[in-house]
Design a binder for these strands. Structure first.
Lengths: 226, 226
DNA sequence: CCTCATATTATGTCTAGACATAATGACGCA
DNA sequence: TGCGTCATTATGTCTAGACATAATATGAGG
């Protein structure tokens, strides 16, 4: 086993097991180098990785300490709906309801935009409603895309490189129209997912998705360390 | 500026701006070392950090490539309710409804457990319902804690070191009893947050929190890179 | 044309040493 | 006692070189 990996994993295990508690002092690089019989740079790399993953905190002169866990954070994965539905073994379909560039005055997506509305279908039943704005200044190719054939999210995935995003999740009661589109049992509670996507500080797209509460839930996980 | 940091930041900027697209080849360590006038180890460290943050992908012999963005992932922060309510400028209070160790047969939290139910209050109105199980094998000190004075989540934060967690978020319609506890406007839609927490592979606690949909939403952000 | 062995190559890891930097604690002075 | 200064110390960063490793590309043989 690599010395660096071994040091990293042994310290991570000691922290995760609770043996070393938040605030505890980690031995100095010199001590660890002597203990493991390797160069200080190797220890430094191992501790650097632990620090990058948030498990320890390093302060010059003071030393290295077991970090205090983040209050509560977790990595949420928002799956591509086509994949999610396919993974359930149901047939996926995207039904376009509306696509225009007129009258699109959306605060969350300034400038000329394309508005698209449609329904994600699973096994011929509505799974989610979607209303999306695409900034035409950022993605002019969107005008040439066929959003009747392909859901705009799927299309964008292949056309937009690295972006930043902000998701807001809330529970809402659907309007009568929304309830009608989502199907009979939808009157109850729906999960609303609002996602705004930026590239280089400018909004690329904004999407609001509405899910039937009884058919969809989001999962987020937190696993500390490397 | 540090050479390593500079290389890292310049490459990250090129990727985030879209100049270098997913799949593009990044120059070899040797080329970058020559270009920046530094040792290969320095370039290697910079690229290693970019790889750790997911922005590039490295393959032996093949080289380094701009990574394909994750389908959709984001870091969700679940704030401590006491802090969240205080940040809104409202008075926070925890009302304990029930705490017992009998009849606690919860699949998500096997073994002897402590069951706690209560309400998080903001400005004398119900903000969230909470039902929690604490595994007594893992946290025996919980028996000695005063959960009338302090919310169990807050107490646990100070007593449990590093853990893993899994959150499930869904929209639900509250039962009549729940709607009554949450207040008048609650009949509509509620956000349910189910969190299971492990340490060293064993469940430490399981909590279900129910929020009024019109009063609470979750935020998750994704920012690629270092 | 296909398959398998081999050479090449880019990353992965490590060393020993050097100098930089920042924070701490001790010391001396008022 | 209080305060400023300075030496100490642990981390931060870098270098030049070495060897390991794995995956690709190449070429030989079938």
């Amino acid at each position: 086993m690599n010395p660096a990996r071994r040091i990293r994993d042994e310290i991570a295990a000691a922290i995760r097991s609770g043996e070393w508690r938040p605030g505890d002092r980690v031995p100095t690089e010199q001590e660890l180098a002597a203990r493991y019989g390797c160069a200080r740079a190797t220890v430094s790399k191992a501790l650097g990785e632990l620090a990058a993953s948030g498990l320890v905190e390093r302060r010059r002169k003071a030393g290295t300490f077991v970090a205090h866990p983040p209050v509560h954070s977790a990595v949420m994965t928002v799956p591509d709906l086509a994949e999610l539905i396919a993974a359930r073994g149901e047939a996926y379909r995207w039904d376009l309801l509306l696509a225009d560039t007129d009258d699109v005055g959306e605060a969350s997506c300034p400038g000329p935009a394309l508005r698209i509305e449609g329904v994600h279908m699973a096994a011929d039943e509505a799974f989610a409603l979607e209303r999306r704005f695409i900034a035409l200044d950022e993605v002019p190719e969107a005008l040439g895309a066929d959003f009747a054939a392909e859901a705009p999210g799927t299309w964008l995935l292949g056309h937009i490189p690295w972006t930043q995003a902000r998701h807001v999740i809330r529970a809402v009661t659907p309007t009568r129209k929304e309830a009608g589109l989502l199907g009979a049992g939808a009157a109850a509670a729906c999960l609303e997912l609002d996602r705004t996507t930026w590239r280089a500080g400018r909004v690329v797209t904004h999407v609001r998705q509405l899910f039937r509460g009884d058919r969809f839930d989001l999962v987020a996980e937190f696993n500390a360390g490397p």
